[in-house]
């Protein structure tokens, strides 16, 4: 099924349309532009609101660009916004998210890539059954496994710690990532593997010297998938960490939806935009690789 996601990226085929301004084209592009406006609007509103002072937000139009551009809301969101008694801004959440995302991405990708490799080249009795359980498990609502995992982490002595959360992200990232790597590795010619076996290379030798160097693109796809997924996580951050370690999404929600104080919409929008910035940068920088990542998640294994 990998060819389908490739086909999605190969762009339009065939001859270019002949007439530029036919009725059909006006309808077609008109609809697409109107739809695009619906998609762009929230980003536009976020940016515009975050650049206005509060007086202007109160009297103005949320869609209008700022009369006077101010970066004060950004500064405030980053270093002064309050959650409860803490008033050190979103920066704490940002660094927490970095500290959570980096090891989670690395650990989950290492484990899943080795899994995929073992499933394709080193099949053992029952390996496919475990893989099937894994894939079906990915459809189970997280809510079903929330509490058992609390117990598990408590038994391991890592409940509420960074490594507890890393483990949770590794567990829930495993089905999709294993599927991704398994499908990719299955497209690498088996002869290569057999030749390496004849030359006496073992499990790890083949992994590090053949599979890894040949699969860099899929590692990039996996990194994109995991960075955005883990950065955007909210539920696991709330359940499995303590307030000092809350990721950015949780802190953002606490800042914006706090009931005390006067609502500062411009600061809220700056904070929202700051939280969305990392996945947005990853998205715009990665382009078609992002599409490939999510398409891989959609095809059956």
């Amino acid at each position: 099924m990998a060819d389908v996601s490739m086909a999605a990226m190969s762009g339009p085929r065939g001859a270019k349309p002949r007439k530029a301004l036919s009725g059909r084209n006006i309808m077609l592009y008109g609809t697409l532009i109107v739809v695009s406006l619906y998609y762009i609007l929230p980003l536009w509103v976020m940016v515009m609101t975050s650049l206005k002072g509060m007086p202007e937000v109160r009297i103005g139009n949320i869609f209008a660009p700022p009369v006077e551009i101010t970066f004060q809301p950004w500064v405030k969101a980053w270093s002064e916004a309050c959650t409860g008694l803490n008033c050190d801004g979103l920066s704490r959440g940002f660094w927490n998210s970095v500290v959570i995302t980096v090891p989670s991405v690395i650990v989950s990708i290492i484990i899943a890539s080795v899994n995929g490799y073992a499933l394709i080249n080193w099949r053992f009795k029952g390996s496919d059954i475990f893989f099937t359980i894994l894939i079906f498990g990915s459809f189970i609502p997280y809510q079903v496994m929330l509490y058992p995992i609390v117990i598990l982490l408590r038994e391991l002595g890592i409940y509420g710690t960074l490594w507890g959360l890393v483990m949770v992200h590794t567990i829930f990232g495993m089905p999709i990532l294993t599927l991704l790597f398994r499908n990719y590795f299955s497209s690498i010619p088996e002869e290569l593997f057999k030749a390496a076996r004849v030359d006496g290379a073992g499990f790890w030798g083949i992994y590090f010297r053949i599979m890894l160097p040949m699969s860099l693109p899929i590692f990039v796809v996996a990194i994109i998938l995991q960075v955005t997924g883990i950065w955007n996580d909210f539920l696991f951050g709330v359940v499995y960490t303590k307030p000092e370690l809350y990721p950015m999404t949780v802190q953002l929600n606490n800042i914006v939806n706090s009931v005390q104080g006067v609502k500062e919409y411009n600061v809220n929008m700056a904070a929202t935009l700051l939280t969305g910035l990392v996945p947005l940068i990853v998205y715009f920088a990665s382009g078609k690789l992002f599409v490939r990542g999510i398409a891989a998640g959609a095809v059956k294994g």
Binding site: P42, W231, N232, F234, V256, M269, G276
Partner: peptide, 14 residues
């Protein structure tokens, strides 16, 4: 690519 938290907060504002 954006989280549901960001999505929810933007639309809460709009």
């Amino acid at each position: 690519a954006l989280s549901f938290i960001v999505t929810g907060l933007v639309w809460q504002w709009i």
